[in-house]
């Protein structure tokens, strides 16, 4: 299935945007390791929806906002992007770090999302376990840690990823450093702010997530009045390793079947 790539000017910088499919809109926010392309998960969603996948400012081919200091800055840029795209009401899917961005956006603008799907979302401090600290390990080890099946890693990135891929990861990681260094991958205000978010929310977690502990998912679910939690077998990159299962869950939650 085809998709288009474009660059959109937003808050003084260019944002790379992939778009495909047709139907009611879904915006997917990618992981901190970047968006690896037009994934089968997006394709499945695109059967019933118009799927938008922006690269976060400073990630992928999007320009880096040198001034940005935290994830809420990124969420603010995205609020403007949604307005510019005419997406006054849309569903959002946040994957890992992208889940954090989506949750921040939800706390800022309560009417904008029809549905929110948080998949292994960062942004909230775990009550049990810790979010794995990518800054203490190599990017390669960090990415691999989120795969249950290393064969799937190799399918997507090759057994020995190209140097260009390493460089792209490095650019993304630099941006993560700039906006999520401390506290590492969570916002202390999140448990308080998220309580007021009444958007219907599906929290999906990989039972064996090695990157973001399940306690984060439980915390989101417990804090939000209209959230339910689905725990499925898997690790962190469910949209790659369990793409069909995740797509079915997403679509049925959105009522798009």
């Amino acid at each position: 299935m085809s998709f288009t790539e474009s660059f959109v000017d937003v808050v003084g910088g260019k944002v790379q945007l992939l778009k495909g499919g047709s139907g009611s809109p879904i915006v997917v926010f990618h992981h901190d390791i970047g968006n690896p392309g037009w994934l089968p998960y997006y394709m499945e969603l695109a059967e019933n929806h118009t799927v938008y996948v922006p690269s976060h400012p400073g990630f992928g081919k999007s320009e880096r906002p040198e001034w940005a200091r935290n994830v809420r800055d990124i969420a603010c840029i995205y609020q403007r992007l949604l307005k510019d795209l005419g997406l006054n009401t849309t569903a959002v899917v946040g994957l890992g770090f992208g889940g954090w961005i989506a949750a921040e956006m939800a706390t800022m603008c309560h009417h904008e999302f029809s549905h929110m799907v948080l998949v292994n979302a960062m942004g909230i401090q775990p009550t049990k376990g810790e979010i794995i600290d990518q800054f203490l390990i190599s990017t390669l080890d960090y990415v691999r840690a989120g795969f249950a099946d290393q064969g799937k890693f190799a399918e997507l990135y090759k057994e020995r990823p190209d140097v260009d891929q390493l460089v792209q990861w490095e650019i993304n990681r630099e941006m993560s450093t700039r906006i999520a260094w401390k506290p590492y991958m969570f916002n202390q205000a999140m448990p308080h702010l998220i309580k007021a978010v009444t958007v219907p929310t599906l929290v999906v977690w990989g039972r064996h997530n090695r990157v973001v502990p399940l306690s984060c998912g439980e915390r989101y679910q417990q804090a939000m009045p209209k959230a339910k939690l689905e725990v499925i077998e898997g690790n962190h990159y469910l949209e790659v390793e369990k793409h069909h299962e995740l797509a079915v869950l997403t679509k049925s939650f959105l009522g798009g079947k």
Partner: peptide, 18 residues
Amino acid sequence: PSGYLGPWARRAMAELRA
């Protein structure tokens, strides 16, 4: 760590860290 050196070092450091 990432960002400690300028963009000029990015490729070499990425290869080294991997």
